[in-house]
Design a protein around this nucleic acid. Sequence first.
DNA 1: AATGAATGAGCGTTCATTCAT
DNA 2: CATGAATGAACGCTCATTCAT
Lengths: 202, 202, 202, 202
Amino acid sequence: MTSKEKIVEAAVHEFSKGGYPGARVDNIAKVAGVNKAMIFYYFGSKEGLYKFIIKSIIGQLMTVIKKSGGIDPDIKPEKFIDSFPENYIRFFSGNRDYLRIIGVDLILNPSNLKEALSEFFNSETQLVPQNLKRAIPGWYKEGLISENDPVHIFLNIISLCIFPLIVKVFPEIIFNIKLDNEKFIEDRIRSTKNLLKRGLLK
Amino acid sequence: MTSKEKIVEAAVHEFSKGGYPGARVDNIAKVAGVNKAMIFYYFGSKEGLYKFIIKSIIGQLMTVIKKSGGIDPDIKPEKFIDSFPENYIRFFSGNRDYLRIIGVDLILNPSNLKEALSEFFNSETQLVPQNLKRAIPGWYKEGLISENDPVHIFLNIISLCIFPLIVKVFPEIIFNIKLDNEKFIEDRIRSTKNLLKRGLLK
Amino acid sequence: MTSKEKIVEAAVHEFSKGGYPGARVDNIAKVAGVNKAMIFYYFGSKEGLYKFIIKSIIGQLMTVIKKSGGIDPDIKPEKFIDSFPENYIRFFSGNRDYLRIIGVDLILNPSNLKEALSEFFNSETQLVPQNLKRAIPGWYKEGLISENDPVHIFLNIISLCIFPLIVKVFPEIIFNIKLDNEKFIEDRIRSTKNLLKRGLLK
Amino acid sequence: MTSKEKIVEAAVHEFSKGGYPGARVDNIAKVAGVNKAMIFYYFGSKEGLYKFIIKSIIGQLMTVIKKSGGIDPDIKPEKFIDSFPENYIRFFSGNRDYLRIIGVDLILNPSNLKEALSEFFNSETQLVPQNLKRAIPGWYKEGLISENDPVHIFLNIISLCIFPLIVKVFPEIIFNIKLDNEKFIEDRIRSTKNLLKRGLLK
DNA sequence: AATGAATGAGCGTTCATTCAT
DNA sequence: CATGAATGAACGCTCATTCAT
């Protein structure tokens, strides 16, 4: 593994623990086992490293999304609900650090994310959300779905995919239980599909 | 307004902008218009102030939740879906700073939240989630709802309520539009109720 | 002596040794016997401290210059040559650190000096150079002086006053001698007056 | 141009901008278009490079000075004043970077200059200052000049030659004018000769 | 309750220099 | 000769916290 890769790996974890402001360059260097100056040699600044990571995460996410039929413009809603949420949930549940980084960035300073996303959405036109926007009016006209606002359909879907992973501690506290990780993910996938199919499909 | 209140008000905003690690005691004092030492006089430390605010937010949230039928042990699912999401959404959409603080805290360091929540759930037994847990098996047996896992029903509901408020920028970027705030909230309430009623009720 | 004054005193010496880039904030704090953070508390930055000192030096210099007939618009050239160079030379020979600071600043980055000077020359109109510019045409018409270009008269005078103090080491090296400080100053004053009187007056 | 020459050229400019402490090895390498390590390969250290440049400048200066009658032991003062200042002024006005480097070095740390000068004055005995020292007593006895102290005659001459080039910005600020470069040099030469002839010759 | 001054640990960053190839 | 990667000490500056009044 190159120094650069070691830095990125360590940085992902450090940023995931305290967000951008809480992350310490010293910690990253120590965990990566490289000289602190190398971080600036490769990434220019703490911010440069952070932006690099954001872009990298978004890039990986986009790759995953493409596999969910993002490329197929003729996809039907049932098939879409069968593939997209599952891929999405599995990606973030397998990369908790990514989830935390994106989550905090989203809340505190979406400008970085904005920039990273814009690059993708300007260079590619066959991604899920764009196809969704194009497909929904047709689905609605055909009587396949019960709502025709792409904005809120989209928000409902990603909220059900992402937020439960973040907020898993909540029911653990409230119901005073400990949720097994693997079973939790399978249950999330099942429950999400169920809710979306019953709630969205006609 | 007392100095203490002015500090809290300023601190809520400061913490909401950068999370706990990104907040600056100096900024809080300056915005509050009080001497920096007063913060330590009243709250002991930055962390003390933060915990005070977390507890205060949770307290306000609980008050709101109680109004959503939290107290009524015989509530029916349709009525519950009609009141709880709306109250929840309106509370956080009217307190964006609270939303950000709780959101980041949830992701980065849920221990504070845990503590604050535990206090409430230990002292009160008629709050929404507890009632939910008690009611759901009955609703399911009666054939009123399509799912019988309180954990995932609960997660689905709060995810649909909270996360869209955080992630509103997403569709704005992706669809390249600007969403009007008030209309957005009304649409969220409508879409959430619609999805939950169709998806959860039988 | 206040902390602020101690910082300024130490900083004058530190800047005089290495110029702005060579000066170390740590050294200033150590020599001043104050906490390093106090420098930023009082002056905001290393640059702020530097600019404060430049302005302070220029201010002191202006006070000295005013005593050299800078205020008298009817001064005659002989009297002027008798007072101005001597005051000028004595000021800088008694403040070697000032001389070094101003000298280096002048060579490397005159913008600070520019700013400090502009403030004085915009707020006061009876300073030496301005009076000089006004008086010289008259002196020349009256046949009192042999040159009528204020720019070069001014440059000749200040060059003879300042530069020898800087370049004193030169003859020491070249002629392999050691020049006594006090005698050197008295000789400088004498030689400067002599050259200017013979060379400039008619 | 060899790498070594490119380094020297870039270094001269870099040192002229910030003095020794303000110069950056990185900048020199970048401007020279060579790998940073080559600077250390050729010159051992930043200081080694600096000393090399100081010696090189002094060497060039000495060559110029020799042309000003430095070699002729029987030169007369009027002829000397006609040639030396002009050569001196033209050398530095055509090499502003040299002027700045020597100027700052002189003020902050004359030891390098000292060493470089010593080498020349130990190896050659017919340079201007030495001849000056030998000639002045004779000139004074013959009634050709009005002062007989070689130290101050020497200081007066080089001050009038060098300092105005450094301090050109001064009258520009004070008189609020912009001085044309070429005309400024010609005026300097004229004014310097005039002042020295009238002031020094009898 | 309130202030301005002070503290010390630590922050992100830069620097001249060296090393392996 | 030449390169890109690596090093460690230091740099200017900030931070939460404390102190004296």
